[in-house]
Structures are given as C-alpha cells and as structure tokens.
Design a protein around this nucleic acid. Structure first.
Lengths: 355, 355
DNA sequence: TCGTTTTAGTAAATCGTTTTAGTAACTCTG
DNA sequence: CAGAGTTACTAAAACGATTTACTAAAACGA
C-alpha cells in the first residue's frame, strides 16, 4: 500500500516543468530528508542501511517527477565539470572535424561533453581561449594542430602538435613512416625531380613533415632542388592556397615530374594550377596528397595520399585524457603516442614521364 | 600608503595555484567582506556607495591574485550557463562545420560557449542528446539539419529544418529562389532532359528542395521523367553515396543532358560515375551542385552550384537565439527567417549537347 | 539484562558566488 | 539639535546538491 505523500508536489504541466524538481522538493514530497534521497540515488556506501522498500519509493518518485540533479550544484560540490575543452584552428577544414568525431565518440559514452574554441592561428586567441576554457572548469584540454601558448595547469593532450611542452602528451603520426611511404612510392614510379609544397609556418606539422621528407629523400638518393620547394601561405581552409603555391612553383619554370604536397586540400588546389598550364595529372606530373580527407577519393583525378587516421587520433586523445584524470599523479606519464600512416594509392600518381 | 593585508594569502606558486583564489580568501586578505568585493567586481548598483580608493584596492588585489569567479557557483546562483547546445548530424560533412563557424563567431563575442552533439540521424540519439543538453543547463539549442524529436522546453533555433514545431524558429534558405536559379540556369543552357538526385529521406531539406524544384520545372515547362529521379541513400558524408545514386541513374539507360544534385558532395560522387562510363562533364552532361562547400570551386570540373550562405545561417541562428533569451516572452515570435541563395557558375555546366 | 552493533535515518556544513536586508557612522537641513 | 539622507560597509540567505557527523530505535549477544 503506497503511503500518502507528505507534501505533495503539484503535478507540473508541460508548461511549468521547465525547471524540473529539486532534491529538496522531492524529499518533502516523500517525507524524507534530501540526504536520504541523495544517498539512495547515488548508491553511496551509506545506502546499505536503507531498506529496499524505501529505496523503491525514492526511485519511483524520482522517475515519476523526472528528477535530474542540477548540474551546477553537483559540479560545484564535486569540483568536476565532466567537460573537456577542444582547441582547433578552424572547424571547416575537414581535418579538425574528423578528429572531433573521434573525440566525441569516446566522450559521449562517458557522459562527457566538450567545448570547442577555434583560434584561426591568431596569437591573441591562442592565449585567450585556453583561459576561457579554464574558467569554464574544463577538466582537460585537447589541442588539435594547435601550438601551446599557455601554461598547462591541467591535463593537456596535443594532437599533431610538436611543441614539446612539459606535461603535455602528444599524439602524433609516425612522420618517418609517412615520409618514407611517400618518397618510396614516388621513387618506385621513377620520379627523381620532385617538387614540394611545405605547410604554413604556423601549422604544427610543417617542420617535422619537411624534416622527415628531406631525410627520406636523402636515403633514397633523391636530391631536393630548393627551387622546387614552395610554402603555403594564408590560413583559409580552401584549396586556393595550394593553387597559389603551385603557381609560384610553376613560375620558376623548372622541370619536375612529381609534386608532394602538404595536405589533400593543397593538392587539390595545386592540381588546378597544373591543369591550367596544360600539365596533365598524373601523365605529366604526379601529385601526392596527405591526410586522406573525404574529398580525396572522389577528386579528379582521385588523390594518391598518405592517410592519417584522424578519427582514431581523436578517440585516442579523448581516451588518454580520461585515463590521465583517473590515475592520480601516480601514473607513469606518457609523452608521445604514435599512430601509423598508410599510403592510399589512387590515380593522381603514375610512372614518371620520360621526356 | 598601501594597507597591510589582514590575512595575507600566501603567494601561490605556479604549482599550487591550480584552483585559484576564492572570493572569500580574497576578501579575508583585504579585510573586507565577500559581499563588498562582489559588489565592486560586478559593478552592481550598490557599488556607487563604495569609495574609489576601496574599489581600487579590490581591483588591484583581484588582478594580483588573478581572481576568477567560479563558474559553477556563479551559474548555480544566477541559473544561467552561458552555454548553448548544438545538434548536428555529423561534423565532417563540410556543411555543419561551416554553420558552426558562424555560430562560434557570434557566441565568442558574448562570452558564450556551445556543446556539440552529433546524432548521425539515429532516432535514439535524436532523443537522448537534447535530454543531455538540457541536463547541462544549456540556455538554448541550435539544431542544424536536424529533425526535432523533443519537446522544446527552452528556445530552439533550427537551421535548415522543416519540422514546423511550435516555438521553434526556423532559419531556412529561400528554396523557391534556389530552385528557380538552378532550373533557369539549366533551361537557359538549353537543357530539357534533366535528371535529379534527391536527398536522403532523413535529411530535412530533401522534401522542400524537391517540391520547389518540381514547381520551378513546371513553370518553365520542363517535364520531369520519374525514371530520371534517384535518391541518395546512406548517411556517410562521402561523395560515395552520390556515386552510387548516379550509377543507379545510369543503369536506367535513359538519356539526359543535365543532372541537378542534392548537394556538392553528391555532385562530386556523381561526376565520378559519369566519367567512368565515358560521359564528359560538362560536354555531355552538365552537373549542378548545391551548397558551395570549399571543395566545389577546385573540383575538376569546378562545380556550378547553388550557394547557401552557411556561415551567415550559423551566425544568424546564434544571434537570434541570444535575442530570444533577452526579450522575456514579450517579443513577437518570429517563426521563419529566410536567407537568399546565389548561383555560382563554374565549369560543370554548359550548353546542352545536340545529339 | 546490559552493552554493542546494526538499521534507518537526519541536521548541518560545504562548494563559491550573488542578493537581500540590514547596521552603524557620518553629513545635511531647517 | 532632531530627523532624514547618504556613505560604507556586512551578516545571512539562497542557489541545489553531497558529505560528514550525528541520533534514535531496533536487534543481537553473552
């Protein structure tokens, strides 16, 4: 026989329930103390001494009135936000979004959310955004292709960053492998005169990618002509910057049979520039991309590219950050986590032309 | 002459300051009450009666100890989160990300952040995510290309949704114009046999886009052959689904001189399918896309497409939501905000071939 | 039967702000 | 010089949960 509620909560209509029931109200309704409800609903140790009948009453009422603990009250008390901050250069470049997919896939399972902040490589935002995220009490930060311009006062995971900041775990591609895969592929197709498009100075992968490519080329006995090296400029996530870079390259009027670009976006722009001057891809010039974004497979010609497992890098970052939070400073700190690239051979590369 | 602090806060090192100073600590340090500091720091009305000297002392100390009000405490008290929730199907389709850029550009100016939740058109997530966002006390929800499967108990703005849910403001493209722009363009190039790729059933734009296209075609006296209409299937954000749809179309073996696709992504996939069977674009078949994502301009051939101002739609959504929050129910409710499309003519469309 | 343990709870403190409702000590004003 | 008003503050309540430290009653053990 159900007991009568002591201080019945008036049935709230759809109109009035906007703010939900508080623990206190629910407790009054049941004639119990908030303490008891809290203990039961959270199944804390003290719950063992509460009889099942009471527990059931509590669960039932919580269900009926759709009780949801107030997020702020709970977080204030527990000093936890169940929220991460994510720093990205820009969302619509096809790169960050893939990483974020991976991040979200892990976080949503754990009841975490994340706040996104785009800095567009602006120095002021690189400092300001982390501040803001800290004020929002994020429990950790994931920085994607983002230089660390702040003192990390909480766990930070960097995806494709290369800043070597103390305390920051870096998730990076095995760039040595990546460079070798690319260079070997071109070499095996007979390419010896290879042009390169480097990344922008601000992009964190630029330096290491270039360094590893130089080494891989050297090992293969390929000489890099500095006239055949150009660099991306500007920060819009459009192929246009690759187009412009390729035009600069063509303006030098030096012969090359292959072009190794910084990423797929710039490869797509570069192909446009090549086609415009009558260079066929891949018959006259092979073009090799990097990343394997969705557009790569269906571009014309379909891009041969070095695939980065972006989704996995995101989920690994989230996973690692969650682990960092549970191990209380006892854990052995991991500085670098490496993921492996893969070469995806499609139609934009071919045997070097003879002439 | 600076006064002596009453209860000096020990200078915290970089190591220990992780949690920051509380208002109480700062007040004790200054020999004042937390109330006074709160009044001064927030410049609330009562601050007029506080002498400048005291104010300065407070500001100085706040600065020195880098005082930041605790977000949870403040939000708990004020019942405000300064956070929106954003529902998207998927981040890496190049569409949502552009909208989010617009959203963020407005929110960051106002000190707001947003939580992202991707539902991938799964019914369970379409119900679960809004719940979660509500529990996180978001002040409003922006739904991008997302059906509303929840009772909106707080302000909701839908971008490219067509659910006509009471209380939801819809930001939508002027689909009539869009359809006309597309049909007129193809008509003027001499196309009469036009094929169509419709969107997936779950995509909110599918129905209206198709309806308006049918009307525009009718007005122009173009007959739509139902054999020349195929539909996208599957929910990956890759051109592959457009590729498959175009193959189905080609399998019907009916002649057409133009193809009006649901979006740029599917246009890119469709072009691949056409090229594979020896159809040249645009010489044999003109292809018209929709959206004008970054990839459109540099695809080969460059896509002629109907541009949606995605960034603007995002910033308009954020702006509108912010306004909704300040006007307290007095405001006249706006149900629909329309934005205008634009046709971007590039290389994927041309005069209809004669044969 | 007395003392201990278990059962079934509760009151009050706490997290860190903001706000409401004061209180004293001055300064005017007539 | 009494009353009103201003100045310069502060104590306490509130937001809504969790946690610590109790209490009162019942059950158990010797």
């Amino acid at each position: 026989m159900p007991r009568k509620p002591k201080n019945p909560i008036k049935e709230k209509t759809d109109e009035t329930n906007s703010r939900g029931v508080s623990l206190k109200e629910l407790a009054a309704h049941l004639g119990l103390s908030p303490t008891s409800l809290s203990i039961v609903l959270n199944d804390s140790p003290a719950a063992t001494s509460i009889p099942q009948e009471t527990k059931d009453r509590i669960f039932e009422a919580a269900e009926k009135f759709n009780y949801r603990p107030n997020y702020f009250a709970r977080s204030l008390r527990a000093q936890r936000s169940f929220t991460f901050g994510v720093l990205v250069p820009e969302l619509s470049d096809g790169y960050s979004a893939m990483v974020l997919n991976g991040v979200e896939s892990v976080l949503s399972k754990e009841g975490y959310f994340y706040l996104t902040a785009s800095h567009m490589h602006r120095e002021d935002l690189l400092k300001h955004h982390p501040q803001m995220l800290l004020e929002r009490q994020v429990e950790g930060i994931i920085a994607v292709d983002t230089p660390i311009r702040f003192k990390p006062s909480l766990p930070v995971i960097s995806v494709s960053g290369h800043d070597d900041v103390k305390g920051v775990t870096n998730i990076i591609l095995n760039h040595n492998s990546a460079a070798k895969l690319g260079i070997e592929h071109l070499y095996n197709l007979g390419h010896r005169k290879i042009a390169f498009i480097k990344g922008q100075d601000f992009s964190s992968d630029t330096e290491i990618r270039w360094e590893t490519i130089r080494q891989a080329a050297k090992q293969r006995g390929i000489e890099i002509d500095s006239d055949l090296v150009v660099q991306l400029e500007g920060d819009i996530p459009s192929p246009e910057i690759g187009y412009i870079a390729a035009q600069k390259l063509l303006a030098k009027n030096k012969k090359f049979t292959a072009l190794f670009t910084f990423n797929d976006i710039s490869a797509i722009g570069a192909i446009r520039a090549l086609l415009e001057v009558g260079c066929r891809v891949p018959e006259d010039v092979s073009v090799l991309g990097f990343d394997d974004i969705y557009a790569a497979e269906f571009h014309n010609p379909a891009l041969t590219t070095i695939r980065q497992p972006l989704f996995e890098m995101g989920s690994l970052a989230a996973q690692t950050l969650l682990e960092k939070l549970t191990e209380q400073a006892d854990g052995k700190f991991v500085e670098i986590l490496t993921v492996e690239p893969e070469i995806i051979i499609r139609q934009s590369t071919a045997e070097a032309s003879r002439n």
